[in-house]
Design a protein around this nucleic acid. Sequence first.
DNA 1: CTAGCCTTGAGC
DNA 2: GCTCAAGGCTAG
Length: 467
Amino acid sequence: ALVIKFLAQRSAALKHRRGAESARRGGMDYSYDTDLEELCPVCGDKVSGYHYGLLTCESCKGFFKRTVQNNKRYTCAESQDCNIDKTQRKRCPFCRFQKCLNVGMRLEAVRADRMRGGRNKFGPMYKRDRALKQQKKALIRASGLKMEATPPLMSSPQPDYSFSTALSTPAPKNTHPNIGTSVAPTDYERNLYASSSLSLSIPIPAHTPLPAQYPAYPTLASHAIKSEYPDHYTSSEHYTCASSPESVPGYTYVDQTPPGLTVPPLVLEFVRCEQDELQVQSKISAHLAHLQQEQNSRSAAERLSTFGLMCHIADQTLFSIVEWARSCIFFKELKVSVNTSKTELKGYQTPYLLADAQTPSIARLRLKRILVNNPAALLSLTADVKLLENQPYVESMYEQVNAALLEYTLCAYPQFPDRFSQILLRFPELRALSTQAEDYLCYKHLSGEVPCNNLLIEMLHAKRTCI
DNA sequence: CTAGCCTTGAGC
DNA sequence: GCTCAAGGCTAG
């Protein structure tokens, strides 16, 4: 009976979402899994192809080209946080260009020599991105069909907290994490900032010089207009190795969805929440280049140690994780319970107040912003903290995640029946490592080696205070 | 200045 | 020869 109820609810939820999507597109019958990838990440207009690093519309392509080619400087009449959508994109070119850079458009894809035609170094990257998108769609579509035909193995032990209940609520709307950005998120932005991750294995050679700056936009000055010149800017390949197209040699698209695989809806939802690959790459690239630029502008005495640089990257990673958590349906559901309990509210307020008490810092503003927007993000900071009274919900959440993982490993890796238990066996190890890293970070912090404005430290602080 | 359409040409 | 992401052109 529970399975039937679950399926009925999920089916209704999907119909609801399909209907909304269909209405948004003027009645055309798009399946819900093909959405979000055909809208320009800058203004939400129709995408016309890959332009300067990612899928954008024709007008933003032209705008970006004009701006870079003519080295235009704009100013914002407001507070540099104007909303950019199809109807308002002409209003503030400053914010429009900022947004172009923020979503990952590449200055170096604009040709300094204005040569027409041909292909540039981004070709393989576009190809790979297309392949990943196809793969994602295939996975979703394949299991969507399975869902219609055969019930999944997943059970829902606690109907009140079931995944289907969570799914039937509208998807969370994410706000851009930028400080001072009060832009109301629109539908096309829903998945843009869902999550991102930074690989800690990316090398940052301190001696590598940065390409020429783009003076008008210092926060993203790492990209060089002339970067297409191979002799001058081969160095950029080093510090952005993880994001360059060459970093995945010989990549070819293989549909890894085994035939007949039933992907649990929860796994599907996580796949859907994954951020666009190209945007993650662009963010990594931009962040590392920015770090590099800051590092180069410091005197030898002020220069950050390797550990300091690692802290910055970890900081960014943590921020991304919190952003991802905000997009997770479970955390969204948790918001209700956090808000309805005084004890829980106190727990939520503690890191908030802690952040408030410190001197103004970027990290503080960011932390506040996250917590104000969605207190449920707190759980991601306090996984072991017993400040949530709604234990049944949390337990149900863990159970559902585990059930989905079990089901997925059984279906996807039938030749390794103990894969699930093997994965679980790694958890204590990971937790031990995590505790060690936390202690080490605290030690480093106490000896003054962690850079200021570090979100990671503030959150660790908050966590220990809560305990 | 904008944005839709056109031309070009390296890589497949 | 085809593709498609560059740059170019131009009416509005």
